[in-house]
Simulated assay, not measured.
Amino acid sequence: MEEYIASGTLEFYVYGLLSEQENIEVNEMAKKHKEVASEILAIEKAVINLSYAVSPHLSAENFEKIRQKLIEKHNGVVQLEPKRGTSQYIGWAAAVVFMLGFAYQYVKHNEAAEQVKGTTAQRSKFEAMLADAQKRNTEHENALAIVRDTLNTPVKLAGQAAAPQAYATVYVNKVSKDVYVDVSGLPKAPEGKAYQVWALKLDPFTPTSIGVIDDQTLRSGMFKLDSNAGVQAFGITLEPAGGSKAPTLDQLYTLGKV
């Protein structure tokens, strides 16, 4: 009888892997031999306990089905407490249940990894947007401080023939002589071009470059220029990227006298 119990037939019987004839034979053996019936019940309890412990989420539905089936089979409640003497089934049942649990954990791990990846990308995007917003806010605050400073004298630069709708404002500090220009009224420079600001002396006409404004600076609105003593006017021309040694007068966008 011990050899029959150790053969593995009862384990296959519990999992429903035997043929109809083999199931009949096991049932007959269980009726005739109490130790066989007890062994079958022990295996069923061990498998249920192990299924619930190793993979509770994956096997919840199957666990309940098995539990109900065993209750009906034995006309009573199947206790789920571990039973001494069932350790010989652990290796056999764990191979099946652990694979199910591992597959479940693998899928969940991949899902979690994808969620973390997506969350990280969203967070990085949000942080970049926040940093950009903070930068723009700082730029706007600095520009507002320049406009409000009573020591800064504004010089209006009107649009010229090359761009009648363009405009700009230069601010010259009476004390520090610092020079700033608000270029928010200039259109986006064409590819490969940049705006260049000139400090002008009119008699004789002497242009001095005091700053080249790239597209990034143009978006920020306010730009600090080099100081130039004795300036009588300011002009802004469209030049090749990097600036020119002398202004391209037919590309004069704005001009204003101090």
Results as ranks from 00 to 15, higher is better:
H74P: 02
R123K: 14
Q79L: 15
T208A: 06
Q216P: 10
V47Y: 14
P247C: 06
F126C: 07
E81G: 08
V116Y: 09
A161C: 06
A168G: 05
Q105Y: 12
E35S: 07
I71L: 06
A42V: 04
V47M: 12
V231W: 06
L238D: 00
F98V: 09
Y171C: 03
I236V: 07
F12E: 15
L144I: 10
L252I: 00
L255D: 03
G76K: 08
A145L: 08
T119I: 11
K174G: 10
H140Y: 13
E64H: 10
Q105G: 08
A189D: 01
S209E: 03
Q88L: 09
V14N: 03
N228K: 14
G243K: 07
V258N: 13
A60T: 07
L218P: 00
R148V: 05
L225H: 02
E25S: 11
A189H: 01
K69S: 12
E111W: 05
A163T: 10
S51C: 07
W198N: 01
Q68D: 10
S55M: 04
A42Y: 05
V197N: 00
A161S: 11
V147A: 03
L202M: 06
G256I: 05
W198L: 00
E28D: 13
G118F: 08
S19N: 10
K257V: 14
K177Y: 06
Q216L: 13
S124D: 14
Y253P: 05
Y195E: 00
E2N: 15
A42C: 11
E35R: 06
T138Y: 12
N23D: 13
A30Q: 09
E2W: 09
W198Y: 03
A162H: 04
M1R: 14
Q122S: 13
S209A: 12
L255V: 02
I40L: 00
A161N: 10
P190Y: 03
